[in-house]
Each structure stands twice: as structure tokens, then as C-alpha cells.
Write a protein that binds this DNA or RNA. Structure first.
Lengths: 93, 93
DNA sequence: CTTGACATTAGCCTGTAGGCTAATTAGGAA
DNA sequence: TTCCTAATTAGCCTACAGGCTAATGTCAAG
């Protein structure tokens, strides 16, 4: 699933917001929301596939970490939709 | 439908990219893609509901125009997911 | 090896996004 | 009015996202 689609779900955006403060394990993330744990696992999987987070096992826990660069790239693509063909680099003329 | 969800579909993002060069009418947009016209009408409706475009009738045509500010806001929200709690405003220390 | 906690996978169900065709509305021209 | 073109709305269908419960896998501890 691509980053835009991954970002379309409010819970997944909230997860990213939690993660910006530092890495967290699956249980902590799941506990912070109303959804069942397996549901959160699904969201985390989606985020991981989109490259927005990374996962790493640490003992019995699995630690999720925000991947800022993908998020920045995605934001840049949005800004490009506005500016890409309008202001450009001033290369023309 | 919210802006993030609206942006999740590739055709809708392409429509926005077309629109950044200037306003276009429904028919021109529909003709530029493989989808049937009513399908494109649906996408345009979604974009309009998200505030990403505006529509205005001009004779028999309906002209669609990009609303850059919503797109910029949306991009800003993404960047905030990265920086919002990390770098903040430099207020601390 | 058994137990217990952490997390994912498997399986099922429901709602809705996204596609099409056909019908309808809106506006200009004859 | 009548007709033609532009665009939307209505209705239907299929596929898949997103939720749950139950079962399974994984690791550390005893």
C-alpha cells in the first residue's frame, strides 16, 4: 500500500504523531487507541509496507520507529502538485 | 471525504497535477484519462468536497480550479507529523 | 519443558470506494 | 419549442479496507 493511502486513515496518522516523540512497541500503541490489538497490528503493517515506519524486535517486544524521510517525501509531492508547474524554478524565459 | 482520503487515489492526484497549470472543464479532464466520464465526475466531486478544487459553471461547461491553500495545509500537516513534537519551535532550551 | 506475556496470522463479516451504463438535468442555439 | 452538447445523478456490481475473535508463533523465565 502506498504512503498516500496509508496516510488516509486517521488512526494511522495518529500513530505517526505518537511515534514522532520516540519509538514505541506495539502494545503501547494499541493501548492508546480504542481498537483491538490485531486491528492495530494491521495498521502498523500498512504503515510499515508504506515505509512510514520501521519495526525491530527487542526481546518479546517489537519496537516501531517513525521513518521521517518518507513522510517528508510525501509532503514534498503534495507541495509539488501546487508549485511544480506554476512557479517552477523560473527556468523558463 | 477529507483531503487525505481524497489524495489517496492516483487519478485524483493526477487531476490536481493537471489543474496546477490552469483551470479546466470536466470534459477536458475526463478525456485525459482512461476512465468513463461519470467516473471522473465522481472523482471531481470527491476533490471538491475535500476543498482541493472549486467548480464554477461557465455556460454549458463547468470549470474546475485548483485550491492550492488546502493542498498546502495538508502538506503542512504531514510535515508536522515529523517535526511537530521533535524540533518544535525551538522554544525549549 | 512448561508457562505466560507479547504480537502476529487466519478467518470471517460488513461497509463503502470506485468502476460502468443508462437516465436525467442544464444551457445554448436553431 | 425542439434539439444538441455538457455534465451530473441514479442504480447496480465487484473488490477490498477495516473491524472483530480465535488460533498461532515467539521469546524469556522458571
Amino acid at each position: 500500500m502506498d504512503a498516500f493511502t496509508a496516510l488516509a486513515h486517521p488512526v494511522r496518522r495518529e500513530v505517526l504523531a505518537m511515534l514522532r516523540k520516540g519509538p514505541l512497541c506495539s502494545g503501547d500503541i494499541a493501548a492508546a487507541f480504542e481498537v483491538a490489538w490485531p486491528t492495530m497490528t494491521g495498521h502498523l503493517k500498512t504503515l510499515k509496507e508504506a515505509g512510514l515506519v520501521t519495526a525491530e524486535r527487542d526481546g518479546t517486544s517489537i519496537v516501531y520507529r517513525l521513518n521521517a524521510s518518507i513522510l517528508e517525501d510525501t509532503a514534498a509531492m503534495l507541495l509539488d502538485l501546487v508549485a511544480g508547474g506554476k512557479k517552477a524554478k523560473g527556468t523558463k524565459t
